[in-house]
Computed example of a mutant assay.
Amino acid sequence: MTWRRTLNVLRSCVRAGTVRRVVLTSSAAAVSSRPLEGDGHVLDEDSWSDVEFLRSTKTGAWAYPVSKVLLEKAACAFALEHGISLVTVCPVVTVGAAPAAKVNTSVPDILSLLSGDDARISKLEFIERVTGAIPMVHIDDLCRAELFLAEEKAASGRYNCGSVNTTVVGLARFLAAKYPQYNVKTDRYAGLTEKPRVCISSAKLVKEGFEYKYKNLDGIYGSVVEYGRALGILPY
């Protein structure tokens, strides 16, 4: 199991005696999978996915957020017991180019409104229903954040990592205006929520001194669209 492998790595760090800090990549799934009524919710690093709720409802890929919560808490308990400096990063939907000819990442999902892939569009809609938003971060910013937290002496605990909180409607409108050649059908999403019900906040990371390079949809999609074209997900 993943948590056992993680603890094995931490045990190796203890035995080595030379590791100054461990940066653990978790997921915003460990933050946002919880019952939330109404709008205007802000989820910070004190927010945890509700394991009992997920186990009782078993909705969608419920085991994934449960595993992320259990892994984080087990790693934190081990680090506290053995005096390890552990920082946990919880990235949201992560997109960007990768050195691979095929992708099994969030990129096809994020490009689905342009490609017209109905199965992927349904996945985006599911993310919004479960999370209350479509939160995104560029892979370059995630990597930079992890390096930043590895080196920042004051860093401790959990850090959410995401630069944009939007919705399927917001994405559709942006993409229809930015890339008219793909004929995004904005009226298809007319019945969906226009504004995010939930904001996954990265205020703690920014307060530490980190600055996102890709701060808006225009910045995120520029390189991702080019990557999708190179992979054949999108036509030129």
Rank of each mutant, 00 (worst) to 15 (best):
K204C: 03
T186H: 07
V22H: 01
A74R: 07
Y159P: 02
A230K: 15
A154I: 01
L86T: 11
K185W: 06
G96L: 10
D50P: 10
A154G: 04
K195M: 12
R144A: 05
G209H: 01
N8W: 02
S12M: 14
K58E: 09
A61S: 03
H138P: 04
S223G: 15
E72W: 00
A133V: 07
A101Q: 13
R129H: 09
I121Q: 14
R158W: 07
S33Q: 13
S67L: 12
K153V: 03
F78R: 06
R21M: 13
A177R: 05
V198G: 00
R129E: 14
L24K: 02
E194F: 09
A150I: 05
G83A: 11
V206T: 15
V103N: 07
V103Y: 03
A77I: 05
L142G: 11
N160H: 02
A74V: 09
A30Q: 03
T88V: 15
D109V: 06
K68G: 04
G116I: 15
L113D: 10
L231K: 08
D141V: 07
A203K: 06
V225D: 15
N183Q: 13
E152M: 03
A176Q: 00
L113Q: 13
A100G: 14
G228A: 14
S49G: 08
G191Q: 06
W48R: 11
I134W: 03
L114K: 11
G232V: 14
V95D: 10
V14R: 02
K185V: 09
L234K: 11
D50I: 08
H41M: 07
A177Q: 05
V198D: 02
T94N: 12
I127D: 10
L205V: 01
L171N: 11
N165R: 01
D44I: 03
Y182A: 08
V31N: 05
L111W: 01
A77G: 00
P180G: 10
A77S: 04
K123I: 12
L192Q: 14
S201E: 05
I233P: 11
V51F: 05
I84F: 01
A101P: 07
S26T: 04
I134Y: 00
A172E: 01
L149D: 05
S56L: 11
A190E: 14
A203D: 13
L24S: 00
V19F: 09
E194Y: 09
P91A: 08
M1G: 14
G132P: 02
A29T: 02
G60R: 06
S33F: 15
W3K: 14
H82P: 11
D218Q: 04
W3Y: 13
E146I: 06
H82R: 15
I139K: 01
A145L: 01
F148A: 01
K68E: 07
A154H: 00
N160R: 02
T94Y: 11
K68P: 05
L7G: 08
L113I: 13
A61W: 05
G116H: 12
I220Q: 08
H41Y: 04
R4Y: 08
